[in-house]
Write a protein that binds this DNA or RNA. Structure first.
Lengths: 194, 194, 194, 194
DNA sequence: CATGAATGAGGGTTCATTCAT
DNA sequence: GATGAATGAACCCTCATTCAT
């Protein structure tokens, strides 16, 4: 009894999308491949999802839960708040390697779907908002609630760290190497030593 | 006399690709649209380019020259080396706004083409290498050749700045806002104040 | 109510292939013509056949059944085993005339598809194997199980007759005349009179 | 100095056609491949040949000279007229093996071009006529001018041998084996032992 | 004599979606 | 809830041929 067939059709479809949309890209993945790998009839697909775009939304939501889960797991055993931040970069490195440097599912979709006013792009923003909140919480733990001596407060620093994280991901994706993540980590270290 | 029709077929095709591949994406843009907007017969396209992918290579090379030109223009009137770096961020803001926050043509293509061992992805790497060199030259001017007091040398800092720039571009693209570029600029200021 | 439209799409496609692939040739017949004469949408074709080559396989199998049916019909009313063989040549003549001397569907395809290790060429071989078996059975009936006085046994003679039949078909096809079939029949008569 | 480039354009084109039309087939070989392998510009091709079909005619004529040359060479050292006939079958075997069992260039073209009233098909017939004449001459040498005891004269027997040769070629082509040529030879032996 | 650019028509194939059952 | 058949539009690419130079 395979892992896929013991689930219902809808779950199999989403699981397949999680794999194919991420690895091959959204546009490069056809409905035919999805239904074929999901072992689902074509019409069955359309009883569960009104369109390919609807599946994409579902994909992004599932991916969000998955990835944020990985992220949170990676810090939950760290007592020290600074260690949490370093754990984030450690996670990024492991994740990029494990995913064959495919990069961020959400930024990738944003590249494929230029139109901003779409539900897809909205999901991307929601994901990045939560990533920012997550990072800001850690920064807040590190810095305390008081602003730094040179006038930089938590939200400012958090945004810089967030930008570093994004740059680390896309640069690592481009080069198939992890040094950008290490550079970002070093930069974060400096920025927080204020 | 339109700007396009006074050129020859090949140039019209590349110009159209510069527009469409960037705005709509590589996969979302069909050969049919390209030849129709280039006012060129289908077979004419294929006398100039062996495949859509070959045009993509040409597109990336033309885009590289174009964008690096913009980048270099933006700093050439700055005498001070620090001002050059701030001019870079100024350029990024203007560019993102003017391009409707479509982001980096090269990173977008890298998202659409997951396979690393392709000529396309190679062009992306080459572009980013030159961007890194450009930034490193400015950092070198700023820092001088001597390493910073806390042991960070030019290449290290340059990589951090590069990662910040990448993060600024993709985050700005995602949010359709310029604050990530400003955050990156602030972070760069701190990193270079060592 | 036309003969074609009362059947389902798949049958209409195969029927059309039976006609066009045979009359015009495999390469000279495009998918567009097939779907147009089958009254079928292009995508419908590809729900039934993964490729043009797959239809070709189907065509060869259908043609095999058809042609072997004609061949067997032509001898089934002959009591005498020698008469059966002469009936074969009689059939060849009628068939070549009725088919406008287009010749053997299988040999024609073999001429169009040089690569031997293809499923298409394999179907050709299978057809010719069965034709050989059919002829050998008749030869066996004629000669009995005992070898001829000059040492030629059934399989040897059967192969000669088979080669004669092939030569009769292609020579008749080339000249648009039936005399090669008559020459082959005469030769067979001599070979079996041993 | 390669063998091809020392010749003029026209010869290079015909040489390329001799190779490609034979190996790949007429329809499967495009003008582009021919001009590319001939190292000739497209327009140069059309200054020498009004159409692809015209090149095909030229190809068939060149092939005719080539193949008949091989055939005649194979018998010219045989003193005995019977040995000449056996030499023909010996040649067929060597030729089929050397040509990778691609078979008769003329019959192959006849399969690809069903329309009988074409110059192409006419060239095929002319070639086969000469092959028949060649065989008949040998048969005549063997049998003398007097008819056989059972009333078969030279033209009759020659046609049978011709049909056997055709069958030997196409059957050998189909199976990628030489036994049909040997079967034809054995049959010829019997037919001539009258 | 030779040429690269240009062409309309068509090649085989896949797209996301809808339908009747 | 699930299905296979059917679809029009579009996919990338190649065909044999002609043209201006």
């Amino acid at each position: 009894m395979s892992r896929k067939t013991e689930k219902n059709a809808r779950n199999r479809i989403v699981d397949t999308a999680l794999d194919l949309f991420y690895r091959q890209g959204y546009l490069a993945t056809g409905i035919n491949q999805i239904i074929s790998e999901s072992q689902v009839a074509k019409a069955t697909f359309y009883t569960h999802f009104p369109s390919k775009e609807a599946l994409c939304i579902e994909y992004l939501r599932a991916r969000h839960i998955l990835w944020m889960g990985w992220l949170k797991e990676s810090v939950e055993n760290e007592g020290n708040s600074r260690d949490k931040l370093w754990a984030v970069f450690g996670f990024l490195k492991r994740w990029m390697i494990d995913s064959n440097f495919r990069g961020c599912a959400f930024l990738n979709i944003a590249s494929e779907v230029p139109s901003v006013e779409t539900e897809i792009r909205n999901e991307v923003k929601k994901h990045k908002n939560e990533l920012q909140r997550f990072l800001q919480n850690i920064i807040e733990e590190i810095m305390g609630s008081n602003a730094s001596s040179i006038g930089l407060d938590v939200p400012h620093i958090a945004k810089m760290i967030y930008v570093l994280v994004e740059g680390a991901i896309v640069a690592s994706q481009n080069y198939n190497e992890t040094w950008p993540i290490e550079s970002a980590q070093e930069a974060a270290k400096i920025l927080l030593m204020l």
